[in-house]
Design a protein around this nucleic acid. Structure first.
Length: 724
DNA sequence: AGATTAAGTCTTTTT
DNA sequence: GACTTAATCT
């Protein structure tokens, strides 16, 4: 066994004493409480290398990361160390569960070709579940029910558990909806994100032989970001290590930011009770940030009551002061941040070393616009958007129904990708036939000749569609990209999109990009197959879109910032209602989580930290005055001082406020016969104006000849200046 | 059947 | 404003 890769990549003398302990304590339970910037990732990687070096086969190592991105990075770094490290299993909980369910799922009645349902499909199923449960959709809104039931699942509570828990109106019906929802998923041979965890946890609990086999396979388990594990994940980790106790978890209670998703900070706090002979290593030194930044983080997090006392020990020299700046409004904020970024780049900072964090995704637009104006390259870290595109989902629907013929959601979507003479009426009839015979829609379409509720012509169309799917299915083995290409042209989707003008053109481009990425998958995976491909891309996440080598400024939510670091960090929108978010205001625990979220953001910064707030912000289309975040006071900033420091800004703020006040329509903003311009419809002339205040309606005759009545508050109408 | 338009709903964070 | 659904037109 060679120690060469080990000593070259990770010189032992470079590790601190605590880090060394975390790396070399190989057997038995180990808890590594690692503060931000304490070299945690490095410790995990060194630990895996040390295990392999001491004779453990990589095949027996399982590391669980929080995101696919983190897993991929870890694999790359390990592979870079030399041969022999690549057999280790490194993935997220969800990906690991997919694998386990493919191996052992049959024992729990789960076929390996299950679909994984995204938000959209989940919503469709939930809608149906609420409908068949016969309750009022206004009291049991599908979106809300999804959230409620997701929490039950994360806590490993079945519909039966909920049933016995209470017999009040809400609980009783929730249990019923939950039960129906699960029935629908199972009819579709589908699992939602939470089911992946739930089914795996139950598999480990109810099938001791599976648990033993997995304990023998994965002799060493590592779980990163343990503070953000929910109960289901906790049970899975426990089950995977129960027979050998070689479980090493790493995390930081102060960085727990997924409580709303069921994450239980108690898991990490109680680790020593769960594993009585656990060794605990604390990594408190910080090698990332300047003392200026760390003092701020320390001061802020001290306001949290539910935590273990911990200090950040700086190791770097003092640096630049943290800057807090307020701006008159959100667009000023965005513009000024862009200007600061420009300055940084001009002074020699790499764009890839600059990041902007915000609480909600909708805040990205303002800063994007400012960066575009200044021609600063940027990337928005929001990865699922590509796969959420209509045309991409359409394309994938064909593939999903090929792999899983029971997937009715995919079947309906595939039929509706473009007009083919099968509409809603026919689908309704098909659905009735299918449920009467206890089969899926795809099966029903295969038997369309028996569907006497419709015409011969339509029966033929259904039969043809089913035959086409069957034909694809016969060659669904092996590489994905060639198959996709065939599906694209032979279904007629390509041909249809080519008739749809520029919108269709970009759709074709996107699908081609999908085919390219599938080709990439084919190349990278030893034995590519469609089922695996679909299950893999279903688990892509936002953070996976972050490319450290893009050479661009990064824009992302505070949640997506977890695990990353940058020389220069901007955090926007330090306002009450935004950070902390209004939905967390009435709950002390949620408020503490918001505080941790800010803490995570602060501690991403190595050298410079810019915090900003806007005194006014456009929220839900309304221009509102804001209140500075309480977190700023807690962190020791005197807001009044910030205010007085820039009396010009205050004047500017007043001026802008006056301006916006003057914009509130005192009288009709548009007069009859006035020329106006609309973003989409072009120029036109006002025919009529109904002054209903906020709900005013403008009737405009556009140059195309069309007359439209538009809601004033939504229509993007501007006056045309004729003097120009 | 399918396209177009009007009206209504929701709006934090994400695997 | 984004998105879905219901109503209406072709």
């Amino acid at each position: 066994m060679s120690a060469a890769f080990f000593s070259s990549d990770i010189p032992i003398e470079d590790l601190t004493e605590s880090q060394r302990k975390a790396v070399y304590h190989v057997d038995g339970p180990l808890l590594v409480v690692a503060g931000p910037g304490s070299g945690k990732t490095r410790v995990i990687i060194s630990r895996i290398a040390a295990l392999i070096n001491s004779g453990v086969s990589p095949y027996n190592i399982c590391a669980i990361t929080f995101t696919n991105k983190a897993a991929q990075e870890m694999r790359t770094r390990l592979e870079g160390m030399g041969a022999g490290t690549s057999g280790a299993h490194i993935s997220t909980f969800h990906s690991l569960c997919v694998k386990i369910l493919r191996w052992y799922g049959q024992r729990a009645g789960i076929g390996s070709n299950f679909s994984i349902y995204d938000d959209n499909s989940q919503k469709r199923c939930m809608k149906e579940a609420v409908r068949v449960s016969g309750v009022d959709t206004s009291n049991f809104a599908p979106a809300r029910m999804l959230g409620v039931i997701s929490r039950f699942k994360n806590d490993l509570e079945s519909p039966e558990d909920i049933k016995v828990r209470g017999d009040d109106y809400f609980m009783k019906n929730t249990a019923k909806i939950y039960e129906n929802y699960q029935k629908i998923l199972s009819d579709n041979n589908a699992l939602d994100f939470d089911d992946l965890l739930v089914k795996t946890a139950f598999l480990l609990r109810n099938h001791p032989e599976v648990r033993s086999e997995l304990n023998r396979r994965f002799k060493y388990l590592l779980v990163d970001e343990y503070q953000d594990t929910n109960h289901a994940q906790y049970q899975i980790a426990r089950g995977l290590a129960i027979e050998h106790s070689n479980i090493c978890v790493t995390g930081d209670p102060d960085q727990s930011i997924y409580r709303w998703r069921g994450a239980d900070i108690g898991n990490i706090l109680a680790f020593e009770t769960d594993w009585p002979n656990a060794v605990v290593v604390k990594l408190e030194e910080n090698f990332r940030s300047t003392p200026n930044i760390l003092e701020l983080a320390d001061k802020l997090i001290a306001s949290n009551k539910q935590r273990k006392q911990k200090t950040l020990i700086p190791t770097l020299e003092r640096g630049e002061d943290v800057i807090v700046q307020d701006y008159p409004d959100d667009s000023e904020e965005a513009f000024s941040v862009a200007r600061e970024i420009q300055k940084l780049i001009y002074d020699g900072s790499e764009p890839s070393e600059i990041a902007v964090f915000y609480r909600v995704n909708s805040m990205s637009r303002a800063i994007e616009e400012s960066l575009i104006q200044k021609r600063i390259p940027y990337q928005v870290v929001r990865g699922v958007e590509f796969y959420a595109r209509k045309e991409i989902r359409d394309m994938l629907a064909y593939l999903k129904v090929m792999v899983n013929p029971d997937d009715d959601i995919a079947f309906v979507r595939a039929i509706g990708t473009h007009p083919r003479g099968i509409g809603k009426t026919t689908l309704d009839k098909l659905a009735i036939y299918a449920s009467e015979n206890g089969i899926g829609l795809n099966k029903a379409a295969e038997k369309a000749h028996l569907l006497d509720s419709t015409t011969e012509a339509i029966r033929a169309k259904l039969t043809m569609f089913a035959a086409m799917l069957e034909k694809f299915r016969k060659d669904a083995e092996g590489e994905v990209a060639p198959l996709m290409e065939r599906v694209f042209s032979e279904t007629g989707l390509l041909e249809y999109l080519q008739t749809q003008g520029s919108e269709g053109e970009s759709a074709v481009e996107n699908i081609n990009e999908l085919i390219n990425s599938a080709a990439e998958y084919d190349k990278q995976i030893a034995e590519p197959n469609l089922t695996d491909y679909l299950q893999t891309i279903a688990l892509y996440s936002d953070t996976d879109a972050y490319d450290a080598k893009s050479g661009k400024v990064s824009l992302m939510t505070l949640h997506a910032a977890k695990g990353l670091e940058f020389d220069n960090v901007f955090i926007e929108g330090l306002e009450e209602g935004l950070l902390p978010h209004e939905r967390s205001a009435d709950n002390q625990e949620e408020l503490e989580e918001e505080r941790r979220l800010f803490f995570v953001g602060i501690t991403r910064a190595r050298r410079r930290l810019f915090i900003s707030l806007a005194r006014h912000r456009v929220m839900r289309g309304q221009y509102l005055r804001t209140v500075p975040s309480q977190f700023l006071y807690e962190a020791g900033f005197d807001l009044d001082q910030i205010n007085s420091e820039s009396s010009e800004d205050a004047e500017e703020s007043d001026r802008i406020e006056d301006y916006y006040d003057s914009q509130v329509p005192q009288e009709a903003p548009f007069r009859v016969n006035e020329l106006v311009e609309h973003m989409k419809f072009g120029t036109g002339r006002v025919k009529e104006f109904l002054n209903l205040g906020e709900d005013s309606i403008v009737v405009v005759e556009f140059s195309s000849g069309k007359v439209k009545s538009l809601m004033l508050k939504y229509a993007k109408l501007t006056k045309v200046n004729i003097n120009k």
